[in-house]
Design a protein around this nucleic acid. Structure first.
Length: 955
RNA sequence: GUCCCCGUAGACCAACCGGCAGAGUCGAUGGACUCAAAAUCCAUUCAGUGUGGGUUCGAAUCCCACCGGGGACACCA
């Protein structure tokens, strides 16, 4: 019956809570924490406490306490706001940067710590399709939910600088950058991007000759030639088509086994006309500038691997009237090239294939076929039938067939047989190799299988079997006819000498190749930035002028992508925007009067918005410019000559090692070349935070049971009476082990949650979530609270009497330690030291202000609400966010005395206590005296005094 | 297969340039307080550092091999 319900267990909890509150009304409970947290969050918002002043423009504030101070720009990888909301793992990095920036703000830095939302892209669209709601609606709701969740944690963001990549005011500038890229070309001499207008001027003046001559070209031909030089260009080329997602994908979005990173659908190579970005022009700079960055080595390595730069040579091997061009990193071993291999797809295969097998050819070479053409045909069919996965999974087993043709080794005139084999990839280098079995493992395996000769050209250690890839003197590398010889040179010198010779003879040249391909930039999706591009009757793209930006994404109910059977490789992509006929056809005046144009209907990929967001935080409302140069120079400019500049600390997961971080670096470099920014790298220092993982439990049937209902008994886990198995992994709905920050705030308060996340381990290490252990952080905050506040009366307990000398030493030791730990993001050890200090003060009869004030200040980065509250109760006005972080008194860091353990042969046999100034000789005397008994008359062979540490005696 | 990182009390983690293995947290146990409990406070417990060698007066720390866990790359010429 309504109004007469029995007390539920929930009510009982509340009664218990109320009872304990009435017993100790001023106790630091979750309820009290919640009340004061809300109050301080309001205070900060109302007072703009965390506003960071810009040098110029709308956000400039000369009266701000940190105006003109040294700057610190710290950023998190902004989240994609999913429909599921945050779990406790998500804000780990955000809390880390919040603690760090609060600390540095108190150290006098003008701190920029913004947060935004990466809200375009596939997942938002998929979520919208699932729920049948427009992505704009779901995205806005998700962003709002994230904002609330983050606000509740007391993160000190400058909220004026927050934006979402889906805001038209934001993507207006994403489109503007696209146009910058579109209207640029890469000058290979200067190795930088230049405005396309400068290229056109060179064409027109004839200083850069064209073929045919510029003046002989039609207007359309001229435009095509120009378009071919742009950094953003359209091309018909094999791309990754993913029917399951209904869109094409960039190489970076495809996993090594040929599936989509998102959704795990099959991906097929398909020739389609798509937008590309010429990231390959920047390969060298993207590799070399890694040296200027403070990034974790694994991330640098991943980028280097992905770019895959190799230096070597192109060499031409004559064959009939043709020649086969190969790329090799080992031109020094050219004399050892005993055969050649083409990729099965290589364009020369058909032309060079012989009509008949040469006399006496081995059966292994022919694959058992009558003619080379049949053998080749069969092999190509077999290769095509294999998936990428099968092709690589076969590992070391080398297959191939002979073409029946022979080419000529250009250095010594030897006839070398030409094979096709799938261990040579069509997409890398020239799709053809010279094979040097003596010094390349793959070639050696193939040569062994096909009984091909092995000629060593590098001195190989005695008894060495297989391919020797190490260093050594060059041998067997001389041509008696020409007199050319590399014999006796080192590997490095021989490479250089060979390249010089090849270039002199016109038989090859030094060359560098890359694994990186140009960035496929268009997607057949609705929820992305529209391209600021239209087409006229020629079908060639025309950039819209800045004045027409933004090109707003048109509203539609028909936003679902056209997807296909995931395995239907022959399906064709369809852009959702193309269905909006009234939007696609547009009348514009682009200079030649009002004409009808057709809009580009692809949208930009998810990565576009995150490619430059670090810049927009600097000047988020600037309508004239992407960012005012003065603001960019202040927040991101290089700090020393030749420095990269960029964000001072960028924190995020390692999963973006290649995708986001590579694309963002590329765009930033284009903007740098065009003079829009003074930094040539976007992120100077990168820190990869670990993940919070969680246990999940499965019952005997293999069904996941809710983790919170599982109890541990006698070393096993039970769900009710049922024994369950424990697994370790991600936190997620499907594993029924999600814990949300909201629950933690309800149960303990945001400060406790923050302290727990920071205390549970180093920021870069992944660890398991353990709700039961959170209580420890709450106890710490309760003890600290109790130092200041009498739990029964609410009175201030702090006295102005000086601290006792012993505790003072502890205080200053802790201050020194905490400062050091904070600077290096070692929050777990900093918190341990704060707990130590708290535990030192707890038993004291009177609590001295001398100790409590520094404690409160030092706790404030971790537990900001509690600290603000205590700071007020200690008699201060306003916020402590700009108070000075405590400094240790060096005089207090000197120990009164030092106890030296005295070791005899590595074992501690005694101790001596001396004053810190005691000289080495005296310590030695005292030590020997202390262990005289243990020495038992033996004379020490050696006595080692380690100053301040110990004394080691050897007998 | 190659390369990189990590293995320390029952759990999470400290230990700086090699110098007494323990800062902190959870758990467990005992005590104080209480009629009792919760909460709180106090105390105790527990590893010789994955295994085996080596260097050293001295090794968790440096070197080598192996085992276990995580990650990167994986025919890139």
């Amino acid at each position: 019956m309504p109004g007469a319900r029995d007390p539920s267990p929930h009510d009982v909890d509340e009664m218990v809570l109320k009872m304990s509150e009435t017993e100790n009304p001023f106790r630091y409970t979750a309820a009290l924490a919640g009340e004061m947290e809300l109050r301080w969050q309001q205070y900060w918002a109302e007072n703009g406490t965390f506003h960071a002043p810009n040098p110029v423009g709308e956000l400039a504030d000369p009266d701000h306490p940190r105006a003109g101070a040294p700057k610190l720009h710290v950023q998190d990888m902004f989240p994609y706001p999913s429909g599921a909301g945050l779990h406790v793992g998500h804000p780990l990095g955000y809390i880390g940067t919040d603690c760090y920036t609060r600390f540095q703000r108190m150290n006098g830095f003008n701190v920029l710590h913004p947060m935004g939302f990466d809200a375009f892209g596939l997942p938002a669209e998929q979520y919208a399709v699932q729920t049948g709601t427009h992505p704009a609606v779901t995205t806005a709701a998700n962003v709002e939910r994230y904002r609330q969740q983050l606000r509740r944690l007391g993160l000190a963001y400058d909220e004026r600088r927050s934006f979402s990549t889906t805001d038209p005011e934001y993507y207006r500038w994403t489109q503007w950058i696209f146009l910058q890229v579109f209207n640029s070309w890469f000058d290979p001499e200067l190795k930088k991007a230049r405005p396309i207008s400068e290229l056109i001027a060179e064409f027109e003046s004839g200083s850069r000759p064209t073929s045919p001559a510029w003046s002989d070209m039609s207007a359309k031909e001229k435009r095509q030639l120009i378009d071919d030089h742009r950094l953003a260009y359209m091309s018909e080329a094999p791309v990754n088509w993913c029917p399951g997602l209904g869109t094409v994908l960039s190489n970076e979005e495809v996993t090594p086994d040929g599936r989509s990173e998102r959704g795990n659908f099959p991906v097929f190579k398909r020739s389609l006309k798509q937008w590309m970005m010429r990231i390959t022009s920047y390969c060298d700079r993207l590799v070399e500038d890694l040296d200027t960055l403070e990034w974790p080595d694994p991330v640098k390595l991943m980028q280097r691997n992905w770019i895959g730069r190799s230096q070597g040579a192109h060499v031409d091997f004559p064959i009939g009237d043709d020649h086969i061009r190969v790329f090799t990193t080992r031109p020094d071993t050219l004399f050892g090239a005993t055969y050649m291999v083409l990729a099965p797809e290589h364009e020369l295969v058909a032309r060079i294939t012989a009509e008949q097998w040469p006399a006496g050819v081995a059966a292994t070479w022919t694959g058992g076929h009558d003619t080379p053409a049949k053998a080749i045909d069969a092999y190509k069919k077999a290769a095509a039938a294999k998936t990428e996965e099968e092709r690589t999974a076969d590992g070391k087993v080398k297959t191939g067939v002979f073409t029946g043709a022979y080419a000529t080794n250009p250095v010594n005139g030897e006839r070398v047989p030409v094979f096709i084999a799938d261990y040579v990839l069509a997409g890398y280098g020239t799709g053809a190799i010279m094979a040097v079995p003596a010094h390349d493992e793959r070639d050696y395996d193939f040569a062994t299988a096909f009984a091909l000769p092995v000629v060593r050209t590098i001195e190989t250690p005695e008894g060495f079997e297989g391919a020797y890839t190490g260093d050594g003197a060059v041998i067997n590398s001389a041509d008696p006819e020409s007199g050319f010889s590399l014999d006796g040179l080192t590997k490095v010198d021989a490479k250089a000498a060979m390249i010089t010779w090849l270039e002199e003879q016109g038989k090859g040249s030094g060359a560098t190749t890359y694994r990186l391909r140009d960035w496929l930039f268009s997607r057949q999706r609705y929820w992305g930035e529209p391209f600021p591009i239209v087409y006229d009757e020629t079908g060639l793209p025309i950039a819209l002028p800045d004045s027409m930006l933004p090109v707003v994404l048109p509203d539609t109910d028909d936003f679902a992508p056209r997807t296909f059977d995931p395995d239907d490789a022959e399906s064709d992509p369809e852009t959702p925007l193309s269905r909006k006929k009234d939007w696609v056809e547009v009348e514009l005046d682009l200079g030649d009067g009002l004409k009808t144009y057709t809009r580009e209907t692809n949208t930009m990929p998810q990565w576009a918005g995150s490619c430059w967001y670090e810049l927009r935080y600097l000047d988020p409302h600037n309508e004239q410019e992407l960012v005012d140069p003065a603001n960019e120079a202040y927040w991101m400019g290089p700090r020393e000559p030749g420095g990269s500049g960029g964000v001072d600390l960028y924190v995020g997961g390692v999963e973006h090692a290649v995708l986001h971080l590579l694309y963002a670096r590329f765009w930033h470099k284009v903007l740098f070349d065009l003079g829009h920014v003074s930094s040539f790298e976007p992120f100077h220092k990168l820190f990869n935070q670990g993940y919070i993982q969680a246990y999940a439990f499965r019952d005997a049937r293999g069904v996941i049971v809710p983790a919170e209902e599982v109890v541990e008994r006698d070393g096993a886990w039970y769900h009710g009476d049922q024994k369950v198995n424990r697994e370790y992994g991600k936190m997620g709905k499907s594993l029924k082990n999600v814990v949300t920050p909201d629950e933690m705030c309800d149960q303990y308060g945001a400060d406790t949650f923050r302290v727990y996340e920071m205390a549970m381990g180093p920021l870069d290490v992944s660890r398991p979530w353990d709700t039961r252990a959170v209580i420890g952080s709450q106890r710490f905050l309760q003890r600290a609270w109790r130092l200041v506040v009498d739990e029964e009366t609410g009175q201030n307990r702090v006295t102005d009497e000086p601290l006792d000398p012993k505790s003072r030493k502890v205080l200053h030791k802790v201050i020194a330690g905490v400062r050091e730990d904070m600077g290096e993001l070692r929050f777990n050890t900093a918190i341990a030291k704060l707990i130590e200090l708290t535990n030192t003060l707890t038993p004291l009869p009177r609590v001295s202000r001398e100790a409590v004030e520094p404690l409160v200040l030092m706790m404030s980065p971790f537990a900001p609400h509690l600290a603000e509250e205590l700071w007020g109760r200690l008699g201060h006005q306003g916020t402590l966010a700009y108070a000075d972080f405590p400094q240790a008194d060096p005089a207090q860091l000197v120990a009164d005395s030092i106890t030296y353990p005295v070791q005899i042969n590595g074992k501690v046999r005694g101790r001596v206590e001396v004053s810190p100034e005691t000289g080495e000789a005296e310590v030695r005397e005292a030590a020997l005296a202390a262990v005289a008994d243990a020495l038992d008359g033996r004379t020490p062979k050696k006595v080692i005094v380690v100053k301040g540490r110990l004394v080691s005696v050897v007998v």
